[in-house]
Amino acid sequence: MTGSAAQGSPSPPAVPEASAAFGGHAPGVREGGESLAGFLRGLPGVDQTGLESRAAALATRSVKAGSKIRALELAISMVDLTTLEGSDTPGKVRALCAKAMLPDAADPAVGPVAAVCVYPDRVSLAKAELSGSPVLVAAVATAFPSGRSQLAVKLADVEAAVTAGADEVDMVIDRAAFLAGEYAHVLFEIGEVKKACGGAHLKVILETGELATYDNVKRASWIAMLGGADFIKTSTGKVAPASTLPVALVMMEAVREYHRETGRLVGVKVAGGIRTAKDAIRYLVLVNETLPAQWMDRSLFRFGASSLLNDLLIQRYKQTHGAYGGPDDFSLE
């Protein structure tokens, strides 16, 4: 496999094989671990300078007028409105859910957002608050954000969230295992979590800020997709740097190549540090230039954010009213 997979993208038979061999139930199978590592190392490298200049060039794309309104509304529909604090009281979660369903009380045409993202113990509350609305509930699980716990604990975390009604589970990969080269272990864990999710969609957080290199981001993206991820997600938001345009570009390219090889559509979620409409539109431009048209939809692209939503609303107000909205024109949550 290493020979043929070394070039361009993996050869078609390589991927299903890898998927079957490593998506299974046997962690640390020696042979499997070695050939997965060989497969990942055979992926074409990422040149940092070239990648970053491409991302910077795309950031100069200019979206104007009617397209801008549509882009802003699209971005609003893609938001996973997030609160992940130790201080998340029921009141805070209720406020967030209300905002998710009705982002702009003055203009009920806006929204709703894609999902609300909370810790597992707030899922049942969020679910109740959002009942009857199309807004999904996503739960971070697997000992978020560090991922440092026993697998059984992580799986229990996931099961609890799913039992409470979570539509989506945002898991973290074991970055320590990844950096130690235990790729098969990372893959195995993702597979186990996927099973625990049942019907819930699985988003796999790579925590790219800890992976350090773009080559690692690419490899981690492939492991996540081979493990059954429905989405790959940049960051927990708890580690700097969080999402960046070049990191998102690497992940989008991986998703595109995986789709070409397998036909399976995997979504991308960018999270952390995305605070302005301008940032959001830059990510949408990246999607537009890198991925087929299906990805321009919240079923395949998301923003994990909180303060972003109000900036999107302010910028939309500018487009619809011709003047900038003020910070107090929109509810904080």
């Binding site: 794309r61 979206v63 009617g66 397209s67 549509r70 509304e73 529909s77 299906q294 321009m296 939809d297």
Partner: peptide
């Protein structure tokens, strides 16, 4: 409903960003 969600509801092809002329 926003234009974005209308597209989805109607099952249209998802929205692609048009870069309006920005001379």
């Amino acid at each position: 409903m926003t234009s974005a969600s209308n597209d989805r509801a109607a099952g249209n092809a998802p929205l692609a960003i048009e870069y309006a002329p920005a001379p």
